[in-house]
Structures are given as C-alpha cells and as structure tokens.
Design a binder for these strands. Sequence first.
RNA 1: GGGGAUGUAGCUCAGCUGGCUAGAGCGCUUGACUGGCAGUCAAGAGGUCGUGGGUUCGACUCCCAUCUUCUCCA
Length: 873
Amino acid sequence: MKVSEIRATFFDYFKAKGHEIQPSALMVVKNDPTLMFTNAGMNQFKDYFLGNTDPKSKRIANSQKCLRVSGKHNDLEEVGVDTYHHTMFEMLGNWSFGDYFKKEAIDWAWELLTEVYKLDKSRLYVTVFEGDKIDGTKEDMEAISFWSKHINSEEIIKCSKKDNFWEMGDVGPCGPCSEIHMDIRSDYERSKVKGRDLVNKDHPQVIEIWNLVFMEYLRKADRSLVPLPQKHVDTGMGLERLAVALQGKKSNYDIDLFQSLIKKTEELSKIKYGANPKTDIALRIVSDHVRAISFSIADGQLPSNTGAGYVIRRILRRAVRYGYQVLEIKEPFMFDIAITLVEQMGEAYPELTNQKSLIEKVIKEEEKSFFRTLEQGIKKINLTINSHKEKKQEKMSSLHVFELYDTYGFPIDLTSLIAKENNIEIDIEGFQKLLEEQKQRSRKASEIDTSDWIAICDQKATQFVGYDTSSTETKILRYRKVNTPKKDYFQLVLDKTPFYPEGGGQVGDTGFFEIENEKIKIFNTKKENELILHYASSLPKNLSKKGIAIVDEKRRKKISANHSATHLLHHALRKVLGEHVEQKGSLVNERYLRFDFSHFSKMKEEELQQVQELVLEQINNGVPLTEHREIPLNEAKKMGAMALFGEKYGEKVRAIQFGNSIELCGGIHVSSTSSIGMFTILSEGAVAAGVRRIEAISGMEAEKYFIGKAKIVDEVCKTLKTQKDIVKTIETILSKNHELQKQIEELNKEKIQLLKNTLTKKITQINGINFLGAQVHLPNSSIKDLLFQLKNQNDNFFAVIGNSENEKCGISIIISDNLVKEKQLNASDLVKAVSHYINGGGGGQSFFATAGGRKKEGLKKAIEEIRKTIQES
RNA sequence: GGGGAUGUAGCUCAGCUGGCUAGAGCGCUUGACUGGCAGUCAAGAGGUCGUGGGUUCGACUCCCAUCUUCUCCA
C-alpha cells in the first residue's frame, strides 16, 4: 500500500463514521504567539478545545503536516541518528469535540488497524495511564475495560504521566492518553525478547504508531487540574510509521517516499545507503531535512535570521553540514534534491509544484551563504590555532570554541575536527556550559508569565465591527494578567470591538477603552487564534460596566492609507514587471509600508518610476473601495482576486477591490484611493533569492517627505543664487573646487618650501644639536608636513614650533630618531611639561608630539623653556 | 525578543592600551622593458574610517544613540 493510499483509506474510514474531512493547516503558525510551527494535528483546533469558538463539526478527521525541531517531543540533533524520528511528518487524526469519547475512539482505532489495514494483532500493544499522585488522577479504568474487549489484558501496559498524560502546554486542556505500539521485528527476534518489554524503550522497531488522547481536564496556571465542561478526543497517528508497518519495511526511510530522495543523494555523493552507519545517518538527515525545508518554503516560510525563519535555516545548515563533512559534497547540492522531491511529491502536494522555482532558488542561495559563513569561520579558526601553536598551548579554551560557534556560526564538530588535525584539544564541557548559560539568558529575557483568564461575563465570540466604525459601546468579557521582564500588562477580551488585531501585515490598532470617566489606554491589539486581545497597561476600576472602545483614528487613517497603497503597489508591480510578481510578505504601519515580492532581478530606475506613476494615477483617479464581505472563496477567485502565498483561507472570505486590483484581505482600507493623497517609493532591494523588497510612504508622511526635499532644493538654489540647472551648476562648482584644491596644495607646498628655507636659517647649534624654535601661523596639518620634511633634511634635529590659528594654538615638537635614542629625549614628555603655558594638554610619541591650547601668549614662554631644557641637557 | 560580532580605497582586509603625515594585497590609470601578450619594474589616481551626538588640547581608536550585514539563543 502506497503512502497516498494509506491516507485515503484513513479518510474513507472516518468519513463513514460521520467525520468531516478537513485539509491540513499550514505548517507555519500565524496568530499564535506560543507556537512557531504546527507540531501536532490538534493545533488548528486549539480554539475548539479552549472553548473560544464552536467547531464547524463535532467529528473531524484530517492529515496534518507537522514540524518538530525542539521541545519535549523531538530534538533536531537526534533526527536521522535513528530510523524513526523526523523533523517533518504527517499526522493522521480523528477528532471529537464534545461528542464521542473513549469507547468509540478505542473501538474504531482497533477496527481500522486490524480489520481495514489488516495489521497483525499479535504485534500490537497498547498503553494506558496509570494515574498520578501529585495531580490526584486515577488509573484509567475505562480505557482498560474498552481495550480488554480487543486485546489480552497482558498486552495492556500501564504507564506513568510522562508517557501517557498529554498536555498542550504549561496550561490548557489535557488528559490521559492511550497509545498503540507496533512490533515490526523478525519472528526470530520476537521469540528471543517479548515485544511488550520493549514498548516505550526507544527500540527502532517497537514503535508507537497511534496516540489517543482523552481531553477531560484543564491545567491552570497554579498547576491544578479542573474538569472540562465538555470532553474531547484528539488522536494522532504517524503516517510514515504506519507506512513502515504496512509496507513491511524496517525503517521509515525505507518507505517509497524517502527512497527516491536517498537515491538522489547517493548519486550526488557516490555513497551507497547501507555502506556505513556513519554515512547512513548523513543520508537520512539530508533526505529528511530537504523535505522539511521544501514544505516550509512552500508554506511561505523563508529562511531568515530570526524566529521561525531561523529554525528553517538551522535545519538546512544541519543537512549541508552532514553533506559537507560526512558525504564530502563540497558545493551546493540540497537544491538539486529538492527538485527530485517536488517532482515526486508534487502531485499530492500542489503547493510544492506551484513554488518549485522559489524552493530551488532559495535553497541554493542559502547553501551558498552557508558556505560563505564556513569560509569566514575557517579563517577565524586558523588564526586561533596559529596563535595557540605560537604560544605552545595544547588546549583551546571554551571561550574560543564558543566564540567560533556563537559569533561566527562555525559548527562545533568542525571546530573539533580541525583542532584535532592540529593536535589541539578543545574544551567541549566548557563550551556546553557557555551554551547553557546563553540559553538561560535568552529564556529569562523572553520569560512571560501569563495568569489564568478571569471571566467577567460568560459569553463566547468577540464581534469585530472595525470595518464599519472606529468606536463602539462594549464590555469586558474576560481578562488576564501578563508579566514580562520588562513590563506587566493586561489582555482584555471584549464583547464587541472596533480594534483591528495585528494580521495580514497590518499592525494592531491602538486607542482607549472608556468606562465611567476612566480612560484605559490600549497600546496594541493582537490575535491569538480566533480571540482578539486588547493590550492594556492597566485595568479599569469597574470591570463589569459597559464602556466605549475607541480606536486612535488619526493613526488608523495613516495605516489604512498605507495598506490601500500596498494593494495599488502590488497591482502596479504586476503590470510593470509581469504576472510572476507575488506578495511574499508585507508590513503596514502608521509610518511606512514594506512590500516583499517575487522578482528575480534588481528593478531598473524606469521601472520604479513607472510603478510609482501608476500608483499615483490610481490615487488621482479617486477609485472608490468596493468591499466584498463574506463571499465564497470560489466566487472571489472567479472575480480574479489575488490570494496570498502562505495564507490559509476559510470558505467565506473578504475581498478588497480598487478598480482592477482585487485582493483577499482582512485589513482596514480607505474608502477611496484619493484619501491616500500621496505616495513615494523610498527604496528597492533584495531580501532573499528571488525576493525583492520595496519600502514606501504615503499620505501626510509622503507629503512631508516631498516638502522636506523641496526645502533642501530651495535652499540649494538660494545658496547657488540660481534656479536653473542646479545639478550642472554643482558639477561645475565641484570640478572647480577640485582644481582649486590642487592649486592650494601646490601653493601650500611652495609656502612650506619658503617657510622651510626661512626656518632652516633659524637653526642654531646647541650642544651639538640642530635646534629650531619658532612661531608660525599655519594649520596643524601643514605644520606636521613641514616638520617631517625638516627632520628628513637635517641631522641631529630638534624643533619646537608654536602655531596659532584663530583662538586656538598649539605646540609641536619633533626630534631626530638618533637623538631620541642617544640623548634620551622624549617629545611627548617635553610637550606635556610645557603645555600648561597655553592652558592645554598634549602628548604623542617619543619623536613627535603635539599639544593644543587656547592661550597664545604662552607660546613664547613654552618655546624658551624647551630651549633651556636642551641647553642644560 | 536577548546576546555576540561587523561596517576603513572599486574588492579582501590590517590599524595593539587615544597622538605612527590613514596603510597592505588585488584591481584601476600612465610609463618603461618585450615583436605582441603574459610578466616584471616605476609612477599615480582613489578614503564623509556606517550615521548622529559626546568626552579630550587631540578620536579610525573611548562613551552614548542609531542603522547595515553576519551569527548564536528563545
């Protein structure tokens, strides 16, 4: 049975049991600050479990793309080492939201596995929760009794909270679970060791395939458990692992899906899978990681140096590292394997095919940039090693090792290898300690302590009225306190709200909540799944009274102008550059707009000009906004609405239309393009391979920008005393200036020559020293020049020159090198000793020193003093 | 979000504790040697020392702020 058939069978089975089949959510999570990637099938249903919104259907089944790279479930560094962990995997799941519970979940799971998929019953084991004293939970007798109907009670294994109690996070819905494990070892091995003794023991061939979670509790912030008003079922079955069992393979990497990737990697590296355990690990890592990265890119997450993008970069770099070191591929190769992946999986996942060229280009560019990083690191480590060799040190300190890793991104195993080749030990333990310290620091800085929700009023959904109004009468439904290292604030959920929560690139609204003459400041609005959270720095005294929520309208006006301008810009770019232009990211706030889009070369001056003119034309035309609210997705697509890459839409969508520009969008817009007023592009540049970024401003901000520019031009005109051909005038002035400067230099040289001659005449012999003491009027730089020339032309030379220019004055002393040595003269000390005469200070080197001050009258005395010193020496 | 590094000539970089007339290599221009090229030699052009403040007689160097790029952690 192929992977695609296994998936279809699963859907058919649960469809027959009254489940609605839902598509996979995006792997990259939006609107949930606690999560970067979908790491379990339940993520997209979180709101149902939390009771924030009602489910569309009480029974749902799906297959979810998941990514696990850190945390308790999986660690990136372990993937590929064994044969059954992945960064990305697919999770089959069936769900009950307050509908069926343990009995049906268990019966159906058993029936599907043994009757439909026809797995060998004697190879299956189940685990149940044994209870926990601290939580006060009991053994899951219900589950045991339902299982007993299908399976011998000896094969039912009781497990602790660690393995069989599932929690969403620190707080939230949770409950006992029951897992089905499968033993895929050979009969011979099975006869030697019983399968049930290997369950939950990390054996590569006795593996968990299905986890049935029975959600019946809510974990509160004080760690206590309270029963949920409704009980839910959440199950998850690893598609890859199921395929191993059904295809009679020994490892996840043997199934059809991975074989072609491994084969391609074998071709590129000329290393066979199975030849050596070390290279096998590398081959597995490459094939696993290339899949995770490609899907992430297809879902809209490009590699970057922060947040979710950084996780993707890390995965890619890990694969490149193994390819580079273990498979000895010294040039970009991952992009090539990604092509194979797209060809092979593109049919089941159209998003891969759609983004094929992006995936290829982005991966290739990332690989190149990693090689650059490695090169820098190699330079750095060579410097360190050389200095160690010079100093005959045999151990590299943890600080050095950590610096290489932390600052230069140089992989620790490469450091270790290179050090070993040079017979230098490295302090790995110290390094681990430093890394742990850095982790602690980061955790502390981002520590937020969220209290439980406190309900004021038992009512569910927030109604968003922001499209029609900017203020409304409303009341607080619930609130909670959030403590962060920097400040404490409150999150409010309102009954009705005009506040737009951050999303679709548009920043959240700010404003006030007025209640009984009290004005509570709302400094931000965000979305957590379906909830709109108003960030307030304080709480009103009276929480249960009605109040008025008022959005800062001035700010919103600027934001909406920028947002509408973004749509016009998008449309203009497609017109000028072509239909390949697609939005890859967007930021809209009150100050400016930033728009990332796919395009493969730098935009030309004329193109930018054209785009800007098109946008301005639309603004001048005063195109009215046509808002299509709550229309079916299909209808919107028929209208030609642009859907955004990396965005998931429901069945009903909102489309924003300005003339020919139609986009699916949930943001706030101006009622007519004429209110945008003004628009100008500030910059165009690259952000990633094949992705360009434009920054622009609109409205008053743009007007201010132009007024500022005009003012500068005005001033320039006034200064130049001309109105026409300013550029030409300036060019002439510049070239003239250049010429004049050269002339001045020439003249200065002559002047110095003259001065040199007069000064040379003033040289007197004192104690066998050619002494010069004089006062001049010259800028400092010329004095230096003059003195160095004199020094070169006279032996046994000693000069002290006082110079004055405007209010400032200075003393310079220069001494021939041989005098410095023979007579132990020190210009720095000498100049310091006399600098008080001019109310200043100074210093320098032994052969040349300067001092500055403001009292010219002292110059004469200072020079005399130096002369005396020389006479007496 | 937090930490570290980075920004100096067209490119790659050096410039230690404040004062070395801002430097090296490559590249560029001109000239010489050679039949021509490669090459060698010589001369030369090219720098707001990321930006804005501050400390100081004096800042590429120290302090503060800000931006760029890289990197690690969350």
